[in-house]
Simulated assay, not measured.
Amino acid sequence: MTLVRHGGGPIAVARAYASQVHPVFMLPPVATALFGAALAGQFDPVVALVYATAAFFAVYTAHVKDGFVDFHLRDEDDDHPMTKRGCRLGLAVATAGFLACLVALAVLATPLSVALALPMWLIGYLHAPQFDTNPVTTTLGYPVGIGLCLLGGYAAQTGTLAAAPLSLAAVFVVVLGGVKIIDDAKDYEYDRSIDKRTVAVALGRRRSRSLAIAALAVGLFAVVPLTVTEVLPPASPVASVAFGVVAAIAVGKDSTTATMLLVRGAYLFLAGLLVAVFFRPLAGIPLPDITVLGPYTYLATEVLFGSAALALLVWAGRAATWRAARTVAVVYPVAYVWDWYTLEVGVFSIPMRTGIELLGIPLEEHIFMIVVPALVLGIHETLHPRSARAEKESDAK
């Protein structure tokens, strides 16, 4: 029996097995395993490469098994380079390579790294047909594998886990989960026709896209409090900003284009975090001190965020601006009483202000009570724009 379906000889066999190496999906696990090692500080490159190789074999197993199931068992794919026997041999060789890496980790590293590596292969092997029909496992399989790559890469160097790798692993799982939801939506029609329960099929295209955007937003923002609490180095949010720009462009595109952009944005995110962790470019540099503005400090921040609120509302349209103005006018009396009372009883104080008071509270607080709801409404109107017809109906009422 032959190993390949097209051609013959060693070159055809080599090409068939090489076709199962997909750089787009192979590079992130390998790079993340090395990133986990870098996160540990000074690391043993041999141990790092062994764990990265284990990640490679786990993902290779997933690709071969997925192709075997989709073509030979489900008849979903139009073609596949390997026969059933070739697929089984590929699975055997990949598994043997993975087990060799486990043995090497047991000798060179720690039992914890072995325990974290083993689930990577299980996720890859069980991806099809066990995991890829359930909305949760089909979405989180690859992201969880990436998280294990990071944790195992770190544990292989240190023998323990810490807040930084655990936090970053969680960030990667959430962010890549959002990317995976959008990626699966590419095959919405086909998956629905065969009752394959991806998130897009289970929730529908619109709600699944909203869930994906929420996951991306939560994951990227999580880097900020992790940096504030000094779990991550100071430059880490720069990686979130870079990926955030790509994500902002991607979410308005079709699923195929959005996935292409987000995958590349994920590379940028990982690279940014690697630079932040390994080189720590902003370490020791203090935050900008805007209190040099003296009594105008608070006012300056309100001008900044007020300008942002105004820009968003103008972008949303005249009707949106008027709706926001009416809402702010209704909210203002409630905010005024609340603000006056909290200041009167000493709940908080405002040292960096002009000292000008109006109706019993600082001038800055009056502005604050306009700027904050206006900014919230500006963001809301931008995220949920109304159609022209809805605008006309709203004006008519």
Rank of each mutant, 00 (worst) to 15 (best):
I181P: 03
H380R: 15
F43R: 11
Y17H: 02
V199D: 03
A248P: 05
R326K: 13
A117H: 06
S394N: 09
P233C: 10
V224P: 06
V199K: 03
T259A: 00
L287M: 13
D44Y: 08
T2K: 12
A48K: 02
A31L: 11
A248Y: 11
T327Q: 07
D77N: 08
L220W: 05
A300Q: 10
G147K: 00
E189S: 08
V241H: 08
A117W: 05
K180H: 07
L287K: 12
P233L: 07
H80K: 11
V331P: 04
I350A: 06
H366P: 03
R74F: 11
L270Q: 09
L3D: 02
S167D: 12
A106Q: 11
A38Q: 05
A217H: 06
A390R: 14
H380Y: 15
D44Q: 00
K253S: 10
V218P: 02
A200H: 03
Y341L: 07
F305G: 00
A38Y: 00
G265Q: 10
T342V: 09
T110K: 08
I213A: 12
C101H: 04
G67Y: 09
R88S: 01
W315I: 06
R207W: 12
G124A: 11
L73Y: 09
A162E: 15
G9H: 13
A311S: 08
G294D: 12
I123R: 03
A242P: 01
V223D: 00
D187E: 12
E302Y: 09
P225D: 11
S167I: 14
P143Y: 05
D184W: 04
S307V: 01
S193L: 03
V277T: 04
A388H: 14
A104E: 07
